[in-house]
Design a protein around this nucleic acid. Structure first.
Length: 84
DNA sequence: CCTGAGCGA
C-alpha cells in the first residue's frame, strides 16, 4: 500500500520515516521527495507497506501526529504515474 | 541555512 506523508520537517529523511512506520508494521519502501534543482526536501514522502491493515493503522495513528515539532499529514497516496 | 506547495521519473 502506498502511503503519502506530507508536512514533514526538512530534516526528516527516508530513514526517519521508515523508523516511524516500522513501529506499526513492515515497511517495504520509503521515499522522500526532494527537489532535483535546489536539492532541498519538498517536505513530503511516500511509504510503501506490505500489510494493508498495518498500513491503515499507521495512517490512522500518524496522521495529524507531531513529528520533529511539525504536524505531519499521513494519507493514502495517489496512484503514481503508471502507464495509462 | 529554510517551514510551505503540499502526491513522486
Amino acid at each position: 500500500m502506498n502511503i503519502y506523508v506530507g508536512n514533514l520537517d526538512y530534516k526528516v529523511n527516508e530513514d526517519d520515516l521508515k523508523n516511524v512506520f516500522e513501529e506499526y508494521g513492515q515497511v517495504s519502501d520509503t521515499v522522500v521527495i526532494s527537489d532535483k534543482f535546489s536539492g532541498r526536501s519538498k517536505g513530503f514522502g511516500f511509504v510503501t507497506m506490505g500489510n494493508q491493515a498495518e498500513a491503515q493503522k499507521a495512517i490512522d495513528e500518524l496522521n495529524g501526529a507531531s513529528y520533529e515539532n511539525r504536524t505531519m499529514v499521513v494519507n493514502e497516496a495517489r496512484p503514481k504515474k503508471d502507464n495509462y
